[in-house]
């Protein structure tokens, strides 16, 4: 599904990614771990098409299609979803209104009519129930005054609504207590299928107990220095990131 080849990327002239290679197939869950500053969030931003990041070299393809010329919204229309580490506040725009706009924008790009209000409502209700989201929450301004947990739950709710092919969860576990973490993980697991794929970016092993990865990659200094199965995450937890630094050196 997603193929990243020899990817180099920089931000404000500073090189962050130095030759990333990654192959994600349908039905797979990949975890990307690594110390702070290793380039985890940069990788997710570059895949999603954030223009603050400059791709110097390499390519990103989704189902064989090159994404490099696509805007963020075009990538979204093709099925890329990024759950933000720090979701952005948009005062005055309700969660419902926002998701409605997003869904219809994607449908329009595909040449479809707007989703009928009745279906939209039904869809929203179902997905809200999945994530144990209260209906009052849906009429609040997007992310404004949300707690950390509410923001992350809202991200996964949007993921559920948009039904992406590739979902990248950037530090979705940060700021979550254990109950919220379970709800979010439960939601992600429910949404997982043989046709879509998930990349979980995390600093800790904790989330991976609930969203079990098929592959784990360790990122250090802009390169994947070690890949393995879920056991690698345990090993990393036990030995700490210093171990990785030693490996890299």
């Amino acid at each position: 599904m997603l193929t990243v080849k020899n990817l180099y990327a920089s931000v404000e002239g500073k090189e962050i990614l130095r030759g990333i290679n990654l192959q994600v197939n349908p039905g797979e869950v990949h975890a990307i771990m690594g110390p702070n500053g290793s380039g985890k969030s940069t990788l997710s931003a570059v895949i999603a098409g954030n223009e603050d990041y400059l791709v110097e070299k390499g390519e990103i393809t989704l189902n064989g299609e090159d994404l490099s010329e696509d805007d963020a919204e075009q990538r979204a229309h093709k099925g890329v979803f990024l759950s933000f580490q720090y979701p952005v506040e948009i005062p005055g725009v309700t969660v419902t209104n926002f998701i409605k706009t997003a869904i219809n924008a994607s449908r329009k790009a595909k040449g479809l009519e707007d989703m009928p209000a009745k279906d939209m409502l039904k869809n929203i209700r179902e997905k809200a129930a999945l994530l144990e989201i209260d209906s009052k929450f849906l009429s609040r301004s997007l992310n404004e005054g949300f707690s950390g947990g509410e923001k992350k739950r809202n991200e996964i709710f949007q993921m559920a609504m948009l039904e992406p092919k590739l979902a990248i969860l950037d530090e979705t576990d940060s700021g979550l207590d254990i109950d919220a973490l379970k709800i979010v993980a439960h939601g992600v697991n429910k949404l997982k299928s043989k046709d879509n794929a998930v990349i979980v970016i995390t600093h800790y092993q904790r989330l991976l107990d609930h969203i079990v990865p098929d592959f784990v990659h360790v990122l250090h200094n802009g390169r994947i220095v070690k890949s393995g199965t879920k056991e690698l995450a345990h090993e990393l937890e036990a030995k700490g990131y210093d171990w990785i630094k030693q490996l890299a050196d």
Binding site: A48, G49, N50, E51, D52, D71, A72, E73, R75, A76, H77, V80, F81, L82, F84, P87, V88, E89, I90, F98, I99, T101, A102, I103, A105, S106, A109, Q158, L162
Partner: peptide
């Protein structure tokens, strides 16, 4: 700009 990017990522173009 972060607000615009967030919308873009959810498939909403800049003008919208």
């Amino acid at each position: 700009e972060d607000q615009i990017f967030y919308c873009n990522q959810r498939g909403i173009d800049t003008e919208k």
